[in-house]
Design a protein around this nucleic acid. Structure first.
Length: 306
DNA sequence: AATACGGGCAACCGCCTGTTG
DNA sequence: TCAACAGGCGGTTGCCCGTAT
């Protein structure tokens, strides 16, 4: 199911593996371990380069490879981790037992990327598509709103996600307008624009990203199993029961995830001015549920100083 | 029925990093 | 300190197959 077999300049075979080659490789590794990959082909009697053997083993023949479709939970983990890590497929794969980096990479490129685009999210930045200054429209907002009002299967989370994204999208564009030079005076009455750049909100499909595109979330220390126990109740408080439950469902406490909301208790304090204005812009559900303030600058913001 | 087209994915390529002497 | 080597990683390629025309 791939390129036709051929020989490279060293006479080593390239292209698809035959069942017989697979059997030889598996037999050898089961008996001796892989050891030096470069030496393995000769020792095992395979006319392949070591690299090809390693890839075949790690991506296909390893006994702990999980086959089949990705679950919703796996999807969410991939999206979350990609928002934090970018195309670090091997690290993402380390959080999904039985999945290979290659498999996740392919899944991302063929499925998730399109899915995010359809939802109006840039798959690179994980941010809603920005305000279109040429047409003076909120690109994709209409689409998101139509998604949020369309009939949905009750088992699907997309409905909620689309609603939340539409709200987030609207808010982001409002913020952009407020932060424009012509609106600076107005926005300064609401809050310091420097502070805006550090606002993050909890991505409805499992990640956090900033309202302004200048920064990507830095890699956080992975969550420990205990962190999951504390993260899930937080999520529940945020009215995101599905996601909270999904954390609880990780019964075997899988590999850790980055901290999606980089906020210590004091850091997560939402400034009153912003909170009040959010309330005017957003409804109750989203105004207080999906936003947190991350303090990562010095000096601390005025509202954190009594 | 034949052909064109596009999606999915296994495998390869080339670069980067860590290790060793 | 440096070079050589091995392994790992992300990006890309190209074939197979299902679907549309």
């Amino acid at each position: 199911m791939s390129r036709a077999s051929m020989l490279d300049e060293n006479g080593l075979k390239k292209g698809p593996w035959t069942p017989e080659e697979d059997r030889i490789l598996v037999d050898y590794i089961e008996k001796h371990g892989h050891g030096s990959w470069r030496a393995l082909p000769n020792l095992a009697g395979l006319n392949r380069c070591g690299k090809s053997c390693r890839l075949r083993w790690t991506n296909y023949l390893r006994p702990d490879i999980k086959r089949g479709n990705f679950s919703d939970q796996e999807e969410q983990i991939i999206i979350s981790l990609h928002a934090s890590l970018g195309n670090k497929w091997s690290i993402i794969a380390s959080h999904l037992p039985g999945r290979t980096d290659n498999e996740i990479k392919n899944f991302w490129n063929t499925h998730l990327k399109k899915k995010l685009l359809q939802m109006g999210i840039d798959p690179v930045t994980h941010m809603p598509t920005p305000f279109d200054h040429h047409t003076n429209t909120f690109s994709n907002l209409h689409h998101l709103l139509s998604l949020s009002t369309a009939p949905w299967d009750s088992s699907s989370r997309l409905h909620t996600q689309a609603t939340q994204l539409a709200k987030a999208h609207l808010l982001q564009n409002v913020l952009q307008i407020l932060s424009s030079p012509s609106s600076l005076a107005i926005s300064n009455n609401l809050f310091n624009t420097q502070q805006i750049t550090n606002l993050t909100y909890n991505h409805p499909i499992g990640s956090s990203f900033q309202t302004f595109p200048s920064n990507i979330q830095p890699l956080q220390e992975p969550l420990s199993c205990d962190d999951y126990a504390t993260t899930a109740p937080t999520l529940a408080l945020e009215n995101d029961c599905n996601r909270a439950e999904s954390f609880y469902d990780m019964s075997q406490c899988p590999n850790s995830l980055p901290d999606l909301i980089p906020a210590s208790p004091e850091c997560s304090k939402i400034p009153t001015a912003i909170e009040n204005n959010w309330g005017d812009i957003m409804d109750d559900e989203s105004s207080s549920s999906y936003w947190k303030y991350a303090i990562n600058q010095t000096p601390p913001p005025p509202w954190s100083v009594s």
